Simulated scan of single mutants.
Amino acid sequence: MNSYRYSLDKSSTKFICPNCNKKTFVYYVDTVKGKYLSTDFGRCDREQNCNYHKAPPTGKRAYLIAFLSLKSITDKAYKLVDVNGVISIVPKSQILEQNANSCYISEWYLKTSTINYLSNESKYFNTDNVSFINEVKTIKPHDPIKPSFHSLQLQDKIIKEYDSQEYDDNLTTFLLSKFTFDEVQKATQNYYLTGANYFWNNATLFWQINHKEQIQACKIMLYNKLTGKRIKEPYNHINWLHNAIKEPDFNLNQCLFGLHLINEDYQKEIAIVESEKTAIIMSIFLPDFIWLATGSKSGFKIELLQPLKKRNCIAFPDKGEFNNWNTKATELNKQGFKIAVSDLLEKTNFNNGFDLADYYLID
């Protein structure tokens, strides 16, 4: 059992909470010195109304990672699928706390992983006796698991069900407020954009169809029909079709969104953005390009970009991502790719995360 140098006071003594000013605050105690820490380290007992909690800044720092699934694969490791569908093998010793749909993973491990974490909530765990061993390197690699595919029959069934409904998904409703019916219809048909009430009412389904016409995945997201923004509160509304239809053995292996379009015109230059929504919107604004989306910042990588190796491409990273994407493109170009990276959004005064669709939709 772990020993903790700092722990919440187990007595009934309460103090004034620095956040809500109620006498409901429990201090942290230094168990070695037998003294309270400074007055802002503690937890408010008003969990529903205040929820203030500040742990001492010592020990092992960990970040909150939301996941779609977390399965034990050996006595020392978990297979984690995060909300973007990225699969990681995480040593059990590095998961310091686990909840139903999220867990705290040590900063030490995250620095060596491909999991996005820097903007996530973090806290410290006072586990001085935890031994950090890189079990990832000791796990023997298994034979590659064959990717799963959704059937064309399933897609056709869902599309027909969607077409028979008397409503539009929230994203399509937003698009219709910005473009003509014919423009939206053409774009949504090109990308097989559909809606369904999986997980949330009026959600949008993004089919990931590869250049061989195989359906590698289908991402489900919920948008605000007035702003066109993804709903991220109180959590990121992202999930997957294989979870909705309960296929637990589905092996998620993503491809670029819109990849099926690259065979339609070999003369067109390919444009790459992060967001699926942005790819659809830009296909209306600038139809002379074939617009593809990585689905996430980390999706700009050789595994997904490989089918584009012989094509002329231009990438439009979101504001703040230019350096990362440009560095990766430089490495890929040494391997025979032909990818230019635009710094258009870096020249704007907008906040990080601003994307090309935002730029073109400005009134």
Rank of each mutant, 00 (worst) to 15 (best):
N2C: 06
S3K: 08
Y4F: 14
S7C: 05
D9E: 14
K14A: 07
F15P: 02
I16V: 12
N19W: 02
F25L: 01
Y27M: 11
D30E: 01
T31Q: 13
V32Q: 14
G34L: 11
G34Q: 08
Y36S: 04
T39W: 06
R43F: 09
R43G: 05
R43W: 00
E47G: 00
Q48K: 14
A55V: 15
A55F: 12
A55H: 10
R61L: 11
R61C: 14
Y63D: 02
L64P: 03
K71W: 01
T74G: 07
D75F: 07
K76Y: 14
K76F: 15
L80P: 09
V81L: 14
I87M: 09
I89M: 14
S93F: 03
Q94N: 13
E97W: 05
N101F: 13
C103R: 04
Y109P: 10
L110C: 10
T114W: 02
I115T: 09
N116T: 14
N116S: 12
K123Y: 00
Y124K: 04
Y124P: 01
F125P: 13
N126E: 08
I133K: 10
E135F: 13
K146I: 15
P147V: 00
S148Y: 07
S151Y: 03
Q153R: 13
I158D: 01
Y162G: 09
E166P: 02
D169Y: 02
T173S: 15
T173R: 07
T173E: 13
F174M: 08
L175H: 07
L176G: 01
S177T: 14
T180Q: 12
E183H: 10
T188Y: 06
N190E: 12
Y192F: 13
T194A: 14
G195Q: 07
F199D: 10
N201F: 11
Q208G: 03
I209G: 03
A217Y: 00
C218G: 06
K225L: 10
P234C: 05
H237V: 07
W240M: 12
P248T: 03
N251D: 05
L252W: 09
L259N: 11
D265N: 15
I270A: 09
V273M: 10
P287N: 01
D288E: 15
F289A: 00
I290H: 07
W291C: 14
A293H: 09
F300C: 08
L304H: 13
K310I: 05
A315I: 06
K319N: 00
N324H: 06
W325Y: 09
T327I: 07
K328P: 00
L332C: 02
L332Q: 06
Q335K: 15
A340L: 14
V341E: 05
L344N: 01
L345I: 02
L345A: 03
L345K: 08
N349V: 04
N349H: 14
F350S: 09
N351S: 11
D355K: 00
L361F: 06
L361Q: 11
D363A: 10
D363M: 03
